[in-house]
Amino acid sequence: MSKPFESMLRYAARRCVVALPTLWLIVTVMFLLVQMAPGDPATFIAGEGDISDEYLAQVRSEYGLDKPVLVQYGVYLSKVIRGDLGYSFRYRAPVLGLIAERVPATLLLMLIAIGLFAIIGVLLGAAAARRQYSSFDLGLVVLSVCGWSIPIFWFGQMLLIVFALTLRWFPTQGMFDLRSPSYGIGRFIDALYHAVLPVTALGMRFMALNARMMRTSMIEALSQDYITTARSKGLTEAEVMRYHAIPNALLPVVTLVGMNIGTMLAGSVLTEVVFGWPGMGRLLYDGIYSRDYPLVIGIILVMAIAVVVCNLITDIVYAFIDPRIRYD
């Protein structure tokens, strides 16, 4: 095992250990927040109508809601440590299973949005930086300010009105065609077709952010001495870009992508609600509405772990693209 690799592993392990108190804090704060939110989950579980006191008492004891808050917290924490996220009030099913069921849909949405739109953003930003103050550059600046500022739920509705309702190019809702269901590879292609609009709604913000960041960072890189040196060595403009400007300009963008995974997760909640996408964000939305404590904390915890892991990956990727970084 090579020495830099070994030190990187040690670094990763250290980061994981540091993440543990963070996760504990998240669980605790979430637990308290949800407890403090007004509203009695028992009434949500029981539903509407002429509900008897006995029935409510039965529901409360069934879900341990009649115990003191501290006891509920202790029970919950000891379960979480053992990898048990508890039992959803609303769905009468284990939280972990419910989340696992929804992860693929959210992952599909996020991966395409991040992968595709981050690359497009970077390319647009780099292109704009080379033609600073051209009309293309100004156009991109305007576009990215709009793209970053427009709320996702509104942009999503606009996409629906134009491309689904008026032009009828794409379906308005969901992940699959249910009238003539397809299976196997056809089902995956069907899902991709249904993903076009939600991915665009979610990715637009991300693209805008990356384009802006890349443009700024590229402009800065292009003014550096090593670019002048590279040009004076007689490298072609394409080579200057490829080997000198872009790699240096990319560094802050990579950090930004990593840091924004959390924002993306928040955005995916809104996107999933607007487009009826059956992902984790929707599950969170339903959970909050019905005061499903275990479900809400479970999802937030999974999201927090995802963010921690993504930050770790960002740091490691950073080392690969920036040879100046050393882990020790």
Binding site: F153, A164, P171, Q173, G174, L178, G276, P278
Partner: peptide, 21 residues
Amino acid sequence: LVFRIIPDASSRTMALEAGDI
């Protein structure tokens, strides 16, 4: 008979108008 779950009210109406539901 299919029940499609669409949480957002205006998206639901649009889906009806577009013939998706």
